[in-house]
Design a protein around this nucleic acid. Sequence first.
DNA 1: GGGTGTA
DNA 2: TACACCCAACGCTTA
DNA 3: TAAGCG
Length: 322
Amino acid sequence: MAAPPRIPRGGEACSVNVEGREVRLTNLAKLFWPDLGVTKADLLQYYADVGGALVPHLTGRAMVMKRYPHGAAGDFFFMKRAPSPRPEWIRTCTIEHRSGNVIDFPIVVDLPSLLWLVNLGCIDLNPWYSRCDDTNRPDFLHFDLDPGPGAPFPRVLEVARILRETLTELRMPTFVKTSGSKGLHVYVPIRRTPLQKEVWTVAKALAFELAVRHPHVITAEYRVAKRPRGRVLVDYNQNAWGRTLASVYSIRPRPDATVSAPVSWQEVDAGVAIDDFHIGNVPARVREIGDLWAGLLEGERYDLSPLVDALKPVRKRKDPEA
DNA sequence: GGGTGTA
DNA sequence: TACACCCAACGCTTA
DNA sequence: TAAGCG
Ligand SMILES: [Mn+2]
Ligand SMILES: [Mn+2]
């Protein structure tokens, strides 16, 4: 792999040749984390450094932009439509919503398109779970583990281990990462057969099953006010159509520039912490151990169809007889 | 972050 | 020139 | 059908 490009640290703006594309980068000296002395150039350099591991996880997926043009502590706004003007080599994904709205989302396919997106003020990257060629059939089932008030991070680790046990019993491959914010994300690679809604149904059923079996540490309660204190929410609704999570290797707009970092289950057992992974140490970790989540894209994929079928209302279920 | 519209 | 303004919207829940 | 949720 080619060495990552060097991002100029000074000057207002510049044009950098990346993999044969001219990428215009702006406001390079602007402090995105004033307390850390971390600039927009540092943010771009980080993504250039981890791009080899990150880009495969984004490529071909519509991106929801969460833009922080005034830094991590500044106001942000969501944007779905790829802004114009833009380089002619930025690809888009056209998705029609049920309301009739048609949105042209940008797609990341390589390092130039990634850096173009980051330069817009995107601190974290938010890809769809499905690829653009079939936006209603996701590649993953996932579990968003959110600690509620009074739930310390080690309780999230505990819930993740419980979840892993359940998924392993079902023979599902599992991958875990810190969210970089408060919790953990567990992903299961699936064959691209069920619709997003069907994947959501499976996530919901498993979330409630877990909450019933481990009521002292897990909740799947929809209403905030009804969630018991000190529990970890299995936020199955994150599997709904059109929703996104911050990707692996995303820097989060948090005070310490923490990163959503892939971790091994051994590290979960040993006890990681959110602030173990940040803009300052993740590039070296990736150089040393590579992409712990490569198997999510390249490895075996689980066939969710039997589970989907089993959860259908009896009348609609495929009759196993005759 | 940056284009556009208004003063 | 110097500003204000805009920039998403879903599907799922319970009442 | 409306409002809460993320
Ligand atoms: Mn979360
Ligand atoms: Mn959540």
